[in-house]
Amino acid sequence: MTKLRNKNIIITGASSGIGEEIALQVAEQGGNPILVARSVDKLKRMKMELESTYSVKCSFYQADLTDLSEWRRTLHQIMEDIAQVDALINNAGFGIFNKVGETNWEDIERMFQLNVYALIMGTHEILPYFINRREGHIINIGSQAGKIATPKSSVYSATKHAVIGFSNALRLEVEDQGVFVTTVNLGPVRTNFFDMADPSGNYQKAIGRYMLDPEKVARNITKALFTNKREINMPGWMEMGSKFYNLFPKLTERMLKSQFNKK
């Protein structure tokens, strides 16, 4: 409970879902959340609630991370405003479940801009600061979809596969420079992510009982902060499935074809 006290932690996509839960738990443990999202009204409310409830310092910055120039400016402003930044949690992201041929090209670009380019941009800009201090933690929210690609998630899976590959290489690059890199690979989480990914609600109905609790996810993430943890994989049975898939991809696709097509 004390390792987060007075730590300044940037959280992207902080106004809802997992990001909101992480901010709450960081504040609960005495850390200072630095909130980044597009919804300024929600960020203002969160700042007031977190500061009044937990007596921490909470700052917020409105930014559209798909605009990389805006995200760079925002991050530099954070670095100017905050005396010391201790961690960056690249949480912002979204998905649209659709077949490739039926997906708008604009949606494909937006998924890569937010899920991949903004994540790499944020990491690229803050990494020299962490290396200079020989201290810092970067947590990148990947997905089990980056390990097992399924129909209607081709583009989303590609973005998360990129996140995992980027994080794995980065971890090796900075492991002797005092910087931790953790990847969080999740199955379906009960958040508003599916409002855009699955507007019909059919997929949520099909897998509802398997969906992860965002509070539990956030608890595992905050627990891993400032520890040299390689990955967080949830749920465990899905991670076991991804390992089996790596060994026997053709067999897995044949066995789980009906499950893969539930979207």
Rank of each mutant, 00 (worst) to 15 (best):
F244T: 14
G30P: 05
I138F: 10
I164F: 01
L225H: 05
F166D: 10
S167G: 03
S69W: 06
P199Q: 12
K57T: 14
F60W: 12
A169Y: 06
I207G: 01
I10R: 00
Y117N: 00
L225S: 04
F194D: 09
Q25W: 06
Y129G: 01
S258M: 08
G93Q: 11
Q25K: 09
S153H: 01
E20N: 00
V56H: 00
N90D: 10
M46V: 04
W71S: 02
E102R: 04
T191C: 10
I221N: 06
T12R: 07
S39G: 11
F193C: 08
A14G: 01
M1P: 10
H124K: 14
L251N: 01
T182C: 03
L68N: 12
L251D: 08
F244G: 07
C58G: 00
F193R: 04
G146A: 08
D86Y: 12
M211N: 05
L170I: 07
E173M: 04
E20A: 07
T74W: 11
I138L: 13
C58L: 00
M238G: 04
E70Q: 12
A63S: 15
M234F: 01
E49W: 01
I18A: 02
I9V: 13
L256K: 00
L186R: 08
E21W: 07
G136H: 12
F193K: 04
F94G: 03
C58P: 00
K257Y: 13
T150Q: 06
L68Q: 14
M46N: 02
E102K: 06
V36W: 01
K147T: 05
N233Q: 10
N168C: 04
